[in-house]
Nucleic acid binder design. Structure first.
Lengths: 145, 145
DNA sequence: CGGTATTTATTGCAACTGCAACAATGTCAA
DNA sequence: TTGACATTGTTGCAGTTGCAATAAATACCG
């Protein structure tokens, strides 16, 4: 165990991870918030709907790291803005069927290049270290709690 | 540029980083929240005070990734709980002098082993990938915006 | 069937957050 | 010295968050 008297928060891995994530998320959200007017939870729901087509709140909660209440509120905002529709699932009326509208698809089509560009810049900044970072994240994202 | 139709949020680096950080922070805070009753911002202020001795709100804001209002509120809670003292800096009366009380030092002394243990478990889980993850975080934490 | 337990999405609530406004203090040039 | 400007920490505010409670729908089991 390291000498507790030499503890340095800036070399403490959970802090480093949180600080890096916070900085990246802030920079990314600045990119699209001004131009597209959506928040991070809304972006995540849109992105998931784009790749998955027609899903429920529960599906999104299971697939991406978001509380169901957060998903629900993001979906309500997106519906109000006209980017998605909410419909009751006929075979199980507890479930919602979230789906992108044409406007929603158009929004995502404009959003994705911004996202890919941002990721490209990250990878460029990381250079050969990107692979190691990604491998570490994969381990941390494994379900084992 | 990747095919936008194949976009997968779970392979999008900013999302992966945020999800991993969120999961780790939650697990870590569960460890000490129940036993010590402090929040993440409070833990960060305590840890920084422990390593730096006698600092102002501005110093903490500059050193760790926290808004000054967040630091201010965490400091108020810690003072109310008796873990730190706030004094006016005599040479510049705009500045505060935050300092751990004896109770605060005792709290940190109990907190640090928990933190080091948590980090050890992370490193164990990561194995040889820890080095690569850390190197990537170092790049992302560099000031260049 | 009937009744209890489970699942799903929403909402109320209290706490937290970031931002901007603010008062108090300090700096500096004229 | 004075007066404009900068810095520091706190607070008001509106928006967001996570958790628990809830209502509606379904599953299950006797």
């Amino acid at each position: 165990m390291p000498d507790p008297f030499s503890f340095d928060l800036n070399s403490f891995l959970p802090y480093r991870l949180a600080a890096a994530a916070s900085r990246i998320s802030r920079k990314f959200s600045e990119r699209y918030r001004s131009e597209f007017g959506i928040s991070i939870p809304e972006w995540r729901v849109l992105a998931h709907l784009y790749q998955s087509g027609d899903v429920s709140v529960r599906d999104i909660e299971a697939r991406i790291d978001m509380e169901k209440s957060k998903v629900s509120r993001a979906a309500t905002r997106l519906e109000t803005a006209g980017f998605i529709t909410k419909a009751v699932n006929d075979s199980d009326r507890r479930l919602l069927s979230l789906r992108l509208t044409e406007e929603g698809k158009a929004l995502v089509a404009r959003l994705l290049p911004v996202a890919m560009q941002f990721q490209s810049e990250m990878l460029e900044q990381l250079g050969p270290l990107a692979e190691g970072l990604d491998a570490g994240l994969t381990v941390l994202l494994q379900d084992e709690s």
